[in-house]
Every structure is written in structure tokens, then in C-alpha cells.
């Protein structure tokens, strides 16, 4: 963790090697979250790139009392949530991705997730891709720990209902 913070200090001074190391360390997890939220690898890469660009240009605003991962996830989820807003406003409802690239056995779960409201879906993705604590989730989305718990419970209950009905087709 201290190593991450030192790394951020170097990124803030414009050290490109430090930035490359930071991306190597977190890139996979960021992509994992983005792909589960946006549905396709291409959209996820685009979102992660935009988020990392904001991180690189705004590295000076990073506060050392935050874990670097918390800060990165905040920026990434801000980008992804806005991307989900655009999809909703275009079609009037949230489109499932045309060609979901989820592995076969997760297809039902993938479809069911589309039914879960944005805030709960973001929390589920963060919780399960990186195993983040309630406290970290609260910090990332700027909400209380109780709200995190109730949103996660609600998200899971919606998933369970959708799956019990035999997929969300």
C-alpha cells in the first residue's frame, strides 16, 4: 500500500515509468470491473483508458489518505456510470450488450445483471472483482456503509429473483 502511494507521487511528477507500473498493477482489475459493468471488452478498454488518462493528468489531486486503488476505482466508476447513463438516455431503457462476451455458464447471470439498478450493479462489480470491503465501497461511491450493505443486498436479491425465474430472457 505504501509502495502504491510512493508510485502515485512519482506519477504526479510526470514519471511515465511509474505510470506504466501503476497500470500493470491495477489495469486488469480496472478492466474486470469495467467489462462487467459495460458488457463488452471494447467498451471496457475505452472506459479504462479514459479513466487512466484522468488519473495521469489529475495525479496531483490524489490525497494520500486514500488507498490508491480506492482513488482509481472512484475515477473508473465515474466514467462507467456516465457511460451507462448515455446508453439509457439513447434508448429510453438500458440495452443489454448485443453480443455479450460472458462465458456460457455465466450467460444467465450476465443477463440478470442488466436488470439490476446502476448503483447496486457498480457495488456488486467492485465487491466481487476485487473483494473490496464495505468501507472501501462506501468511499468509492461517496455513500454510507449502511447504504452499501442495503444496495448490495437489494442487488443480490434482484439477481436471485431473475435467475430463479429461469434467466432474465
Amino acid at each position: 500500500m505504501e509502495h502504491d502511494k510512493k508510485l502515485m507521487g512519482r506519477v504526479a511528477r510526470g514519471d511515465e515509468a511509474a505510470f506504466t507500473e501503476l497500470v500493470g498493477r491495477f489495469g486488469g482489475r480496472l478492466l474486470g470491473v469495467a467489462r462487467r459493468l459495460l458488457g463488452s471488452r471494447a467498451d471496457a478498454e475505452d472506459a479504462v483508458q479514459r479513466a487512466l488518462l484522468q488519473c495521469y493528468l489529475g495525479a496531483g489531486t490524489y490525497q494520500a489518505e486514500w488507498a490508491v486503488s480506492t482513488w482509481l476505482y472512484r475515477i473508473l466508476t465515474n466514467v462507467c456510470v456516465d457511460e451507462l447513463r448515455r446508453r439509457t438516455s439513447r434508448s429510453g431503457q438500458l440495452d443489454p450488450p448485443a453480443r455479450p462476451d460472458a462465458p456460457g455458464r455465466y450467460l444467465d447471470l450476465h443477463r440478470a445483471l442488466v436488470r439490476v439498478p446502476t448503483e447496486a450493479r457498480v457495488l456488486l462489480a467492485l465487491r466481487y472483482v476485487d473483494g473490496l470491503s464495505y468501507g472501501e465501497l462506501a468511499r468509492i461511491r461517496g455513500i454510507s456503509i449502511n447504504t452499501v450493505k442495503s444496495q448490495l443486498a437489494r442487488g443480490k436479491s434482484l439477481l436471485r429473483t431473475a435467475l430463479t425465474k429461469g434467466g432474465a430472457s
Binding site: 511515465e16 505510470f19 506504466t20 501503476l22 497500470v23 500493470g24 489495469g27 486488469g28 482489475r29 478492466l31 474486470g32 467489462r35 462487467r36 471488452r41 471496457a44 478498454e45 479504462v48 483508458q49 487512466l52 488518462l53 495521469y56 493528468l57 460472458a102 455465466y106 447471470l109 450476465h110 456488486l124 462489480a125 466481487y128 472483482v129 476485487d130
Partner: peptide, 22 residues
């Protein structure tokens, strides 16, 4: 849920692309 939400493989060119865009 854990199986579905596994992290993705880290893309090799990501940092370079971001630095170019910057």
C-alpha cells in the same frame, strides 16, 4: 459471483496508449 467477476487479463499496451493520448 466470484467466478463471473474474475479480473481480466492485463492488457499490455494500455499504459502506452494512455501516455500517447495525454
Amino acid at each position: 459471483l466470484k467466478g463471473y467477476f474474475q479480473p481480466d487479463a492485463e492488457p499490455g499496451q494500455l499504459a502506452r496508449q494512455v501516455l500517447l493520448a495525454a
